[in-house]
């Protein structure tokens, strides 16, 4: 894997409500440069919402977001999101564009690269995820695992400082999960700063540097994986682990 110019991401006391539904109730999350933080917890605990708040797809009601120590809440949110790549559970590739155009679109339109150069860089990214030979295919003709790898290439093409993964393997057939998790582990080893919302406890335990357990919009426990998985302190985490392991 190539070197990344990754950054340090911090969320401080993040709050968000949808009407009376208080989804995030003061979340703190710190991801040191080049490390991987996984976020686990039952569904509806606010994990995916947390990701969307931290790249300002949803603006927080309260709190602060810092990238390399500087608050980004006053920045143009579109520019912030160019610095944070995101991978979704449902891949969300653009079905009307070829695989390579999916990857090169933002390079051409946002980075303003000439067409040839954007195409060449996109092919390079596809090569990294092992799908250069599918460059001219349509996303619909790819397997779920291949689509997700293209989605990762699409996000990486923008040279992000941080990568978000929102249950990136939950929609995949079991035999395809491994390839995507392997790619994510490679990125982590390559020094990418990553926030990984996941139900894959094996990945969380073996690849991430810190694990954060969320429930009902609060961080219940967090720490290095050994501590969180082997010595859970709270009943809520103990209960969750016994449900999923």
């Amino acid at each position: 894997m190539t070197e990344f110019t990754s950054g340090t991401l911090t969320g401080k006391n993040l709050h968000l409500s949808f009407g009376h539904n208080h989804v995030l109730r003061g979340i703190d999350l710190h991801v040191e440069k080049g490390t991987t933080a996984s976020v686990i917890g039952p569904s509806g605990s606010g994990k995916s919402t947390l990701l969307r708040v931290m790249n300002r797809l949803i603006e927080p009601d309260q709190g602060d977001i810092l990238l390399d120590g500087r608050s980004v809440l006053k920045d143009n949110p579109d520019e912030l999101r160019q610095r944070i790549g995101m991978v979704f559970q449902q891949f969300n590739l653009f079905p009307h564009k070829t695989v390579v155009d999916n990857v090169s679109l933002a390079l051409r339109k946002l980075r303003k690269l000439p067409k040839d150069q954007a195409h060449a860089e996109a092919l390079e990214q596809l090569d990294l995820v092992g799908l250069k030979h599918k460059a001219d295919a349509r996303p619909a003709n790819l397997s779920g695992g291949q689509q997700q790898r293209v989605a990762i290439a699409r996000a990486l093409a923008m040279k992000p400082e941080v990568m978000f993964f929102d249950e990136a393997t939950s929609a995949l057939d079991p035999e395809l999960v491994k390839g995507v998790l392997g790619l994510m582990a490679d990125l982590a080893k390559g020094g990418m700063t990553m926030v990984v919302v996941t139900h894959e406890m094996g990945f969380s335990r073996n690849v991430s540097d810190t694990v954060t357990f969320m429930d009902a919009g609060v961080v219940v426990e967090s720490g290095p994986p050994e501590q969180v998985f082997s010595a859970p302190e709270t009943d809520r985490l103990k209960g969750f682990l016994s449900d999923v392991l």
Binding site: M86, F88, F94, K109
Partner: peptide, 26 residues
């Protein structure tokens, strides 16, 4: 699908570029 707009916004496109490049063509 809502995810199309979301994916485009997540790449750094604004609302109108996302509509023009991704959502409306589909």
């Amino acid at each position: 699908e809502k995810g199309q707009l979301e994916a485009s916004r997540a790449l750094g496109f604004g609302y109108s570029s996302s509509m023009r490049l991704v959502v409306i063509p589909q």
